[in-house]
Structure formats: structure tokens, C-alpha cells
């Protein structure tokens, strides 16, 4: 028996060496593919995408982030109650001092999202990297999530749509909201609103990985006082603000 086992062990050792030798070449090919397509892997919870929005840099009258979002995602740009709005520019006025500040308001990509809690079909979900999305294949359009969201971030598509963007499928009868430009983020790009804000020279929106202590956003959050809107709800939003 022991002889058989030794043989077996010897076989395993040899075969594993052989396998390792074989796997080097395919491994290298796989690495090359991984460089060319960084999209092949599942997202992991080692990353938590978030934003830091500096409202003191958010200029009065500029709506570049809203326009960029509409263009990127194929939204109409209308502001009727029945139009989809994924990001809104909000004016805040302190009645005591008269100080006015502006900030973009969007899905806050909560760590504990109420929209996910209430969804009866599990269409509303949080990706491992913290992005809260609607799987429209599962959404039945009940709109519970819209009622549950304390930020009024979600919209319902009331009408048939045409000419959707290839990367951003949208359709009648489903709920939608800011996807944190998931199709761009998966390609390693910034969100459209953050890009538009820096292009306009304001740099009010800083997008990045909250979990990486070396990322610009994590350093900034360590250095300055930041606010989560409705922090009392304990949802730990990924979108954070400073200067409000």
C-alpha cells in the first residue's frame, strides 16, 4: 500500500510540476488578456467606490455635471415630475446667515441601502464594490425603492424610450438612478459628472476608491471635515460632501 501511495505521491509531484510548466504559457497569455480586458474579473469588496463633493467649489450657474450625466446616459434632460433625473443641482440657503451653497445630489450609494432592503424582487442590489444598481431584468416597477430612498434619488421610466445608449439600457416600467457610471468605472474611467466638473475647472467632484488608503479621495477624507447627508440614518453613503 505504501508503495502505491509513494507512487501516487510521486505522480502528483511530477504532474504538478508538469502542470506548472504548462500553465506558465497560458498564464502569460491570460495576463496579457487581463491587461487588454480588465473587465473579465468579478468586482470585489476590496474596492468601495465613492465621491467627495466640495460644495464650496460648486459654482453657481454651472450645471455641467447634470448635462454630462444626461449625455452619457441618454437622459432627456427634462425636469418634469415624470422625467428621469439621476443628478440634480441643489441650492442650500442658511436662513440665519444667508449663506448660499450649491451641491449636486445623486444616488448616495449607501453601504446599507434602504432601496435594496425593500425591493420585493431583489432587482435593487448593491454590487460588491459598493455601487447600488437596479437589475432591470428583475424590476417590476413597483417603486417601493423610490419611496424608501431618503434622498429621492430614483426615477421611474413612464414612457417608451428610443435611442438608448449601448452601455446604458433603460426602459419603460423600471426604476433607475445614478449608476455611478458603472460602465465607465469598469473600464477604469472616472464618472461622467466628475470628468465634466474637472473639465470646467471646478474640481468639485472627486471620485475614487474609499477603501484604498493611498487614493486621493481617502487622503482627502482623512484630512478635511466631511459630511454625509442624513448621517443620522446610519446608511453610510459612499457620496460625501465637504463645505456644507
Amino acid at each position: 500500500m505504501s508503495g502505491t501511495n509513494l507512487d501516487r505521491r510521486g505522480f502528483l509531484t511530477k504532474s504538478s510540476v508538469a502542470f506548472a510548466g504548462l500553465s506558465i504559457a497560458p498564464g502569460m497569455i491570460l495576463f496579457d488578456l487581463a491587461q487588454a480586458h480588465p473587465l473579465g474579473d468579478a468586482v470585489s469588496s476590496k474596492v468601495r467606490w465613492g465621491m467627495l463633493i466640495d460644495s464650496s467649489k460648486c459654482e453657481s450657474g454651472c450645471t455641467d455635471c447634470v448635462t454630462a450625466c444626461n449625455t452619457e446616459n441618454g437622459l432627456s434632460g427634462g425636469v418634469k415630475a415624470t422625467d428621469s433625473q439621476w443628478i440634480r443641482k441643489v441650492e442650500l440657503k442658511d436662513l440665519r446667515t444667508g449663506r448660499t451653497t450649491f451641491l449636486p445630489m445623486l444616488c448616495q450609494h449607501c453601504e446599507q441601502p434602504p432601496c435594496v432592503d425593500v425591493c420585493p424582487t431583489a432587482a435593487s442590489f448593491k454590487r460588491a464594490d459598493g455601487i447600488v444598481l437596479v437589475d432591470k431584468h428583475l424590476c417590476i416597477g413597483c417603486r417601493y425603492c423610490m419611496m424608501a430612498c431618503p434622498y429621492k434619488a430614483r426615477s421611474f421610466v413612464h414612457e417608451n424610450l428610443t435611442d438608448q445608449k449601448t452601455d446604458v439600457p433603460r426602459g419603460k416600467g423600471t426604476v433607475e438612478s445614478c449608476t455611478l457610471c458603472v460602465h465607465r468605472v469598469d473600464k477604469g474611467q472616472n464618472t461622467a459628472c466628475a470628468d465634466a466638473c474637472s473639465k470646467a475647472g471646478h474640481n468639485a467632484i472627486l471620485f475614487g476608491n474609499l477603501n484604498d488608503p493611498e487614493s486621493e479621495i481617502a487622503k482627502r477624507i482623512r484630512a478635511v471635515a466631511t459630511t454625509q447627508i442624513r448621517a443620522d440614518l446610519g446608511l453610510n453613503p459612499g457620496i460625501q460632501y465637504e463645505g456644507i
Binding site: L39, G40, A42, V43, R127, L133, D135, H137
Partner: peptide, 21 residues
């Protein structure tokens, strides 16, 4: 692959609707 793409962010695989089109 639909659910893998939507829920896990696995993109760029062999089949996709955009690829068909």
C-alpha cells in the same frame, strides 16, 4: 452571462448583446 455582468461586473466575455448587434 447577463446576471454575471449586471451583478458582478464581469464584462468583456465572449457573449454580449452589444456583441450580437
Amino acid at each position: 452571462q447577463r446576471d454575471e455582468t449586471v451583478h458582478e461586473g464581469i464584462r468583456g466575455k465572449k457573449y454580449s448583446l452589444a456583441g450580437c448587434v
